[in-house]
Design a protein around this nucleic acid. Structure first.
Lengths: 196, 196
DNA sequence: GTCTATACACTGATAGAC
DNA sequence: GTCTATCAGTGTATAGAC
């Protein structure tokens, strides 16, 4: 599983940048090769399986990084849930934005069914699972009131990715402030209250 | 601006279904023609400008419908903001899901800059503007506390579209219940409280 | 590791018959 | 309105030289 060969890493980096920005079908192997100042055919030296294999490898590496980053962000941040979620936002903003919707509805259907299913599973494990655990823990300690953890995780992830990727035209504030406000609103709505 | 010719409407319907599902680059004219049981070249009788013109016309029609639907939903629903937002959710769920992220980062860059800019403007007018007005009004009447209306609109739209389009695998509840819970959490976070 | 050359399929688009 | 035929352009992929 080690990616020896520095060159291979550079190929994956360039491919990741383009695939994550524009999606699977919109990016050509020539685009990727051009970004590396090499010719399209040279890519086959690094990734034998061609475009699809390259895409799968890129996404899987990206998701593994996300899982690791999210888990350490959640583990290292201090106790209150708010701080942990802010750490999550900070981590997500440090990464290239991922368009979950396009991935699932546009990119995955263009792959072989086996690969598509594998990637969809990775999505859940890397992105939702860590958040679900954090919310469940906060519920167990009574920090927030009970609610579907999968719902909360999806809400947060979706909102943060939107804040991360949507152009300035759609948002007046810097994304960090925007994230903080969204998290505050979310947590205010989840506070323990009399009558619940 | 009238789309006489029933046939033209059928073409736009088929194109809209495919374009909205898979995105601009992933859909070929042959895909659309096949859905209509005609040949690819026949599409040029209905839309002279080819693929790009077809896409722009489809999206513009979709957004006009959204603007109208959102405005009447917001106008007809009874007073409390919660009811209005639920009506918005109901309307959005009655329409084919739109992937705002893919649209902006994948589809628009594949068009000529002029058309891309035009569509991006339409997005704001059709989707965000009606919601922004509703939030501003609720703030004016003191129903919710002050907050960036563009932020709130973006949050709501993003969350609802995610609930609408993400596969069951990512959500345990039916999307209507999910929307209701998200709206409640959002509004709970915006209630007037002592100290604000 | 990267290149050139090339095969082959597919895509958008045009011309013209019916 | 829809067809067939056809084109140029682009896409992935392979073979083999350096």
């Amino acid at each position: 599983m080690d990616d020896h060969s520095e060159a291979k890493r550079r190929v994956l980096d360039a491919a990741e940048k383009l695939f994550m920005e524009r999606g699977y079908t919109a990016v050509t192997l020539r685009d990727i090769a051009q970004a590396l100042n090499i010719k399209q055919a040279s890519l086959y030296y690094h990734v034998a399986g061609g475009k699809e294999a390259l895409f799968v490898e890129v996404v899987e590496r990206n998701l593994a990084r996300h899982r690791a980053g999210l888990c350490t962000a959640l583990a290292q941040a201090e106790a209150p849930l708010r701080a942990k979620l802010l750490a999550v936002a900070e981590w997500l903003f440090s990464q290239p934005p991922l368009d979950l919707g396009r991935m699932i509805h546009s990119d995955l259907p263009a792959l072989s069914p086996a690969q598509a299913q594998r990637l969809e599973r990775s999505f859940h494990e890397a992105l939702l699972q860590p958040l679900e655990e954090a919310f469940a823990q906060a519920q167990a300690t009574g920090e927030i009131r009970p609610a579907q953890v999968s719902l909360l995780s999806g809400m947060l992830l979706t909102m943060l990715e939107a804040a991360h990727s949507l152009p300035t035209h759609f948002r007046a504030l810097p994304k960090q402030r925007l994230a903080a406000e969204m998290i505050d609103i979310l947590l205010d709505g989840l506070r323990l209250r009399a009558g619940l």
